[in-house]
């Protein structure tokens, strides 16, 4: 399990990549990946390509990111969701909160 983040050249977009299990143990890493070092990004991308598993606390963490990024006005894409991850996001209808993209 590891969380990495990368800013776009113009600093506007922050991409967070989660490898392995996305669950409560990722909490601290995930938070520090988006909490601003310099100025806050205006768009977010969460790359779930190498995420094998996602539980309800991961959904909670996504909600924290959404809150941080402006709540209902947040611009967050969840990209590269595999079938299992997609299923979990679907049950909770997170497509109503996030822009879910199957492939980047």
């Amino acid at each position: 399990m590891s969380v990495t983040s990368e800013r776009s050249a113009d600093g506007q977009e922050l991409t967070i990549t989660i490898k392995g299990r996305f669950d409560f143990s990722t909490h601290q890493e995930f938070r520090s990946a988006y909490e601003p070092k310099e100025k806050q990004a205006s768009r977010y991308k969460v790359d779930l390509k190498d995420t094998h598993y996602l539980d309800s606390s991961a959904l909670g963490m996504l909600l924290l990111l959404r809150d941080h990024a402006g709540g209902e006005r947040a611009d967050i894409q969840l990209v590269n969701c595999n079938n299992d991850v997609k299923k979990i996001l679907d049950i909770s209808n997170f497509s109503k909160l996030f822009n879910i993209v199957i492939t980047a």
Partner: peptide, 14 residues
């Protein structure tokens, strides 16, 4: 089928 976002997530308006 679950057609909705769980309780406690969305604001009253949404």
């Amino acid at each position: 089928i679950s057609a909705n976002v769980p309780l406690g997530v969305l604001s009253a308006g949404s």
